[in-house]
């Protein structure tokens, strides 16, 4: 696709712009900003990836993954600001996700140890892990607030912090995993996954594209389970002190790290 052809695709930006103006939705400015940002960001990534793929230098792959983890942590930490040290808990979670998944993929020779495979797969997994973290932290902080009396009841009867928080923790882990599992149930029926569609459009064999997509789906399942569980078990102890008392949460506007 040439840049001229791509510029014709801007017609699809004009349609929502005309609609938002006609219906007074007030979204014109946001639509233009989103369009410009996506063009700049994706083109920049395209050129960076070309450079990284051609250089075949492991340092660049490492730096790309570090950048992804930094961006994902920055995005997700706001949702868990009331949990002490959430920044490092998120970083650790993303690192574990990256090591476990890439370790299995490369270790079992499922995918080659090349930038062309490592970077896009890492992007999908860390991105998914970030969304899962946000879902988990949103639900977990809400559960703790809502079940404060129940948590203190269990503590007052001689329960441990783990017993006191168990219900909130399990509910939050389940709630954050449900969207991933549910979306996989209807995949291929309601929508074709973006990566698979991209491969087919680029001329790949549809069956091979499906095989690759299945691999990603299974990886996303692992990511979903591992992210919520690691983050949950890293987070709950910070809610209690050494006397097994529920500690007061810091102001959400304060730096949690």
């Amino acid at each position: 696709m040439s840049f001229l052809t791509l510029s014709l695709a801007l017609v699809f930006v004009l349609i929502p712009l005309i609609l938002t103006k006609t219906l007074n939705l007030g979204l014109g400015k946001d639509t233009i900003i989103a369009t410009i940002r996506s063009i700049i960001q994706l083109l920049a990534v395209g050129y960076i990836l070309t450079f990284v793929f051609e250089s075949e230098n492991l340092i660049y792959i490492f730096l790309m993954v570090v950048l992804m983890i930094t961006a994902a942590t920055h995005n997700a930490r706001k949702k868990g600001a009331s949990i002490q040290g959430i920044t490092w808990k998120l970083v650790l979670t993303f690192i574990i996700i990256e090591i476990v998944t890439q370790g299995i993929l490369i270790g079992f020779k499922i995918t080659p140890a090349e930038a062309q495979y490592i970077i896009p797969i890492s992007g999908m997994l860390i991105g998914n892990s970030m969304v899962l973290s946000i879902l988990f932290l949103n639900r977990f902080t809400a559960e703790i607030e809502a079940r404060k009396e129940e948590t203190e009841l269990i503590l007052s009867l001689g329960g441990t912090p783990k017993q006191a928080i168990h219900h909130s923790l399990i509910t939050s882990i389940k709630a954050s995993m449900i969207p991933t599992i549910e979306s996989q149930k209807t995949i291929g029926l309601v929508q074709l996954p973006g990566m698979m569609s991209g491969q087919i459009i680029a001329g790949a064999d549809p069956v091979q594209a499906v095989q690759f997509q299945l691999l990603i789906l299974f990886l996303l399942l692992t990511t979903a389970a591992v992210t919520s569980i690691i983050l949950g078990f890293l987070s709950y102890p910070t809610l209690f002190n050494s006397r097994m008392q529920l500690v007061k949460w810091p102001d959400k506007n304060n730096d949690p790290a």
Partner: peptide, 23 residues
Amino acid sequence: IQEYEPTKLRRNVGLALQNATML
């Protein structure tokens, strides 16, 4: 009180609060 193991202390000093929270 600080020398007691918290879970043992709480089992021995029972507390029933006004709101009677239930599971």
